[in-house]
Nucleic acid binder design. Structure first.
Lengths: 179, 179
DNA sequence: CACCGTAGGTTCGTTCATTGAACCAATTGC
DNA sequence: GCAATTGGTTCAATGAACGAACCTACGGTG
């Protein structure tokens, strides 16, 4: 099957990477997973992705070892999807894409990433502009930027308005749902 | 049109970027353009991409200001596609993807990127491991790694076997074509 | 016990994108 | 006059994405 994921003729690690994470929606699922989203329904409402596509992406990301599916309660059976180290290693890719998007598509500052240890800003390549170190994902705190919608419709976006350390599970607020 | 390129609900510069360069083949076309490929036929044989898709990608990349189409001879009319600054700014994205591909998909060293000024290796985020500076794309020299096929079928891959400064036009060798 | 709500999916018909093969056009070299 | 080169377009077939509907398993409420 020449269509879809494989770039047969390419002898290149960029092509290898894109075969795994280059499909539509895949990198946005990984982004949400790094932001702490873990549950099927949270991905669903936050991404606005068709259910069938989300199921397919979660399955292949799990097979590829980027997410790990694990049961967090037995009755009723409920699973969550957690990023692995391999998934967390995609952070520089997402950082680079976000930087390019901000610089060359849309200048607004939607989210700001801070180094938890020193308070500096994590810029282009995942480096802290204050202390100059390469900040691991787990030491990054995401805070809303000035131009982020302050009253979004879905509960996941609302939960992401609070300062949030990456990788830690997101706690949605089921209390204030909208009709 | 909800299908295809837009991620309507996403308020995120990663999604903005993916709307522009997230389609199938697009980032590989940009990669080739950074490697110095400029002509329709060179993209075609090197990527193994369907002609209709290549035409579509070259058109949208030109419209987005990532490539610039320009006439290099009048009779017969011939155009080439050259990366703009906006396109060159995607270098960190490609570097990050390539790094992840090498680290987490396929461990082989296919290409090595060297800093022209100091001879160091350009690693993960486009930084030189010897002098520590962020190397601009135009100062990067690509050399074949030990595991790259040393006798590829298409002339573009053969031309890319020679050490090659990025962004500079690729000179294919029309002499030794294969049947 | 009937019924609703929630979480996590699958199924299915329609629409859109990708593919590969064929065709087209302008010009140079023989 | 004829083939080759370069840079495309067109078209039928196939695959992927979309959105709506449906399904399962449980818990809570009246």
């Amino acid at each position: 099957m020449a269509l879809g994921k494989d770039y047969a003729t390419q002898e290149c690690s960029i092509a290898r990477a894109l075969e795994v994470v280059g499909e539509r929606w895949t990198l946005l699922v990984v982004r949400d997973a790094l932001y702490g989203v873990r549950r099927y329904n949270d991905f669903l409402v936050h991404l606005g992705i068709p259910r069938a596509v989300l199921s397919a992406r979660l399955r292949t990301l799990t097979e590829e070892g980027i997410l790990e599916k694990r049961r967090y309660q037995e009755a009723p059976p409920r699973d969550e999807y957690v990023v692995t180290d391999r998934g967390a290693a995609l952070w520089p890719v997402l950082r680079a894409l976000g930087q390019w998007g901000r610089d060359h598509v849309d200048a607004s500052r939607l989210r700001i990433f801070r180094h938890a240890d020193c308070g500096g800003t994590v810029e282009s390549y995942g480096m802290c502009d204050a202390c100059g170190t390469l900040v691991p994902v787990s030491d990054v705190v995401m805070v809303p930027g000035p131009e982020l919608d302050s009253a979004p419709a879905d509960p996941v976006s609302r939960a992401l308005l609070r300062p949030k350390r990456l990788l830690e599970p997101l706690e949605t607020d089921p209390g204030q749902h909208v009709d």
